[in-house]
């Protein structure tokens, strides 16, 4: 057969060879089949450690907060809000108290209304929480101006028994 058939064939074979050699350098050594088999475990192994090294932001450890903010911790623990972790309102405490030195507190109405909007759902736990109608219950002012989130009981209005 004439060479005009073979010449492009050699070019193709050459290209395949170049790709295969390049592949040796590009594909990482730990890329391949791992514990879960070919179908679910065909991946780059070192990515697992990359995910493990992802920075933690929330401590979600009230004992950590207690070490400095003992008073606030104690009052919260005696209240009906004891099940709410500090960082849910105070924000993630990564690096605190060094950086950031102050945490940004979520004091918005929306934060309280997450639970305290009255929703008449008889078959949900939501019905057991005391709720208000946000359109009618002092819609123009923030909740914390009357209620202390660390002492949410009705008897402990601000200016009262603080």
């Amino acid at each position: 057969m004439s060479s005009h058939v073979f010449r492009p064939l050699f070019v193709i074979i050459g290209l395949v060879g170049v790709i295969l050699i390049a592949r040796l350098f590009i594909v990482p050594e730990d890329f391949g089949v791992h514990e879960r088999g070919y179908m679910y475990g065909f991946y780059r192994k070192s990515n697992e450690n990359e995910w493990k090294a992802f920075p933690v932001k929330y401590k979600f450890n009230n004992e950590y907060c207690k070490a400095c903010h003992t008073g606030q911790y104690d009052s919260l623990m005696q209240s009906a809000h004891a099940n709410i972790s500090c960082e849910n309102c105070h924000g993630p405490a990564l690096g605190h108290p060094l950086n950031p030195t102050k945490l940004k507190i979520d004091k918005t109405r929306q934060q309280c209304l997450r639970c305290h909007t009255h929703l008449p759902y008889p078959t949900s736990n939501r019905a057991t929480i005391r709720g208000i109608n946000p359109d009618k219950h002092n819609p123009d002012i923030e909740c914390f101006m009357c209620h202390n989130p660390h002492k949410p009981n009705i008897g402990a209005f601000r200016g009262g028994t603080q």
């Binding site: 088999g37 679910y40 997450r114 639970c115």
Partner: peptide, 28 residues
């Protein structure tokens, strides 16, 4: 290797439990 499938030798298998009776939809 291809047909080995799921030869799971790990002693950890994470599972998650959601109780919809307890959820109040607070979104925290």
């Amino acid at each position: 290797k291809i047909f080995a499938g799921k030869g799971n030798v790990s002693n950890v298998r994470w599972i998650f439990l959601v109780n919809t009776y307890k959820c109040v939809g607070c979104g925290l």
